[in-house]
Amino acid sequence: MSTAYPDTWHRPPQIIPNRRWRIAIQTGIVIYLILAISTIEVNWSRVYEGLERGQRFVMGFLQPDFTSRWKDISQGLIESLTMTLTSTVVGVAISVPIGIGAARNLVPRPVYMICRSIIAVSRSLQEIIVAIFLVAMFGFGPFAGFLTLSFATIGFIAKLLADDIEEIDATQAEAIRATGASWLQLVDYAVKPQIMPRLIGLSLYRLDINFRESAVIGIVGAGGIGATLNTAIDRYEYDSAGAILLIVIVIVMVAEYSSSYLRKFLQ
């Protein structure tokens, strides 16, 4: 009786049922990987020399030196922190009108198109690339960094804000509109209460991102702790570099915890 049942079973392929396609895609992946890996040229003697330096870096990370470059570090840190705060405030302040303008359900079509394209430009340009241009225009220093981060904040906040507004409860907006409210009253009564908590949460999140980015754009001359870090690595002062990285990690951790706490508190 039991012999009537098959005694082999193979799991049917889940994603690509067609056997030929599957084989084609699998070979394609293998060929790509071989080609890609073969393009890596490694100078092993250079790597070997570097190992000693890598070891020094790890040691520097484990025994960070906060004191000998403390003046530079604190200067960079102050630049980074002030840059982060001012750029987030300015960025969010500009994002709000643009975000409202980019919500399809609130504004006429031309305004929507303009605001959405501002967002698209801001999102598609890397912070570093923006920083390169702004440094060229405004000179070295934290002011260029401030502008870079403000610009990046606009794309981030305005996009999420606009998407949120487009998803708000339409019946509430209609109810308010039915009372004969003006457009400003509509935004104030129907939109603001619904998106305010979210806006605060996003701003805190962006504050955190801006700090992390402020540690990078210094590499291209836009001020902040990144410039200090760049100098430390150029001078092979790995213990100072380790100290800077640890400070960045700690600040990001603190920012992350406090922002999640604040968001909970505000809701």
Partner: peptide
């Protein structure tokens, strides 16, 4: 690897 013994598979079908 989903390579169960034949007896198990037979039993599962049953």
């Amino acid at each position: 690897l989903r390579r169960y013994p034949p007896a198990d598979i037979r039993r599962a079908y049953e």
